[in-house]
């Protein structure tokens, strides 16, 4: 094949190209086929070697590395998120504990204060009762005293009036009359 085209080289070149222009379709010029096929095979083999020996393993490793990095980062992020939610739960728990503790303390204080207030109230009530009883006794005393004083004054006034009128009346009669009037 190769020797054939070599032998017919000069004549075949003119059969496909005349005066620098193509005759018919250059794609169908059989004389050029061996050349094109040879260089195509060379090219494809070179490209295949470049790709399979250098380029594709390199890109594959880069892609794998990137995938690994992304997976690791996502895992790390997941872990951190878990930690954060744990911390949040702990914080919530502490907050709830503090709240119940505060409520408990408040209730205790309230109960204590209530007890104190009750005690003080009772004491004050007792005092007030004692004082008011005393006052009532005094008031009753004063009232009887006042009644006596009124009788005395009325007796004196009546005696004076009787003496001015020169009527001789016994003291006991006067006081009896006054008693009657005061009661009336």
């Amino acid at each position: 094949m190769a020797t054939e085209s070599t032998e017919n080289g000069a004549s075949s070149a003119t059969s496909c190209v005349q005066d620098g222009s193509a005759v018919g379709m250059p794609q169908l010029c059989l004389d050029w086929f061996p050349n094109q096929i040879f260089w195509l095979v060379v090219t494809l083999v070179v490209i295949y070697l470049i790709l399979s020996k250098i380029a594709l393993p390199r890109i594959a490793s880069v892609l794998a590395e990137r995938q690994g990095t992304i997976t690791n980062d996502i895992a790390a992020a997941e872990e951190l998120k878990l930690k954060a939610s744990e911390a949040e739960a702990a914080y919530e728990k502490a907050l709830a504990d503090a709240r119940t503790e505060a409520l408990r303390i408040a209730a205790e204080a309230k109960a204590e204060m209530q007890a104190e207030v009750d005690l003080a109230m009772k004491k004050a009530d007792a005092e007030i009762a004692a004082k008011s009883a005393e006052s009532e006794a005094r008031i009753a005393e004063i009232r009887t005293g006042a009644l006596e004083a009124v009788r005395e004054v009325a007796r004196d006034a009546a005696r004076e009036v009787v003496s001015v009128l020169d009527i001789d009346v016994e003291d006991s009669a006067i006081s009896a009359a006054v008693d009657v009037r005061v009661k009336g």
Partner: peptide, 28 residues
């Protein structure tokens, strides 16, 4: 020359070589 042997470096060779170069430039 105007004789195209199977091994002659032609414009086919040139443009295929350029394709190889371009592929190497991109992929390597």
């Amino acid at each position: 020359g105007d004789v195209v042997h199977w091994y002659t470096p032609t414009n086919v060779t040139l443009w295929m070589a350029l394709a190889v170069l371009a592929i190497s430039a991109l992929m390597v």
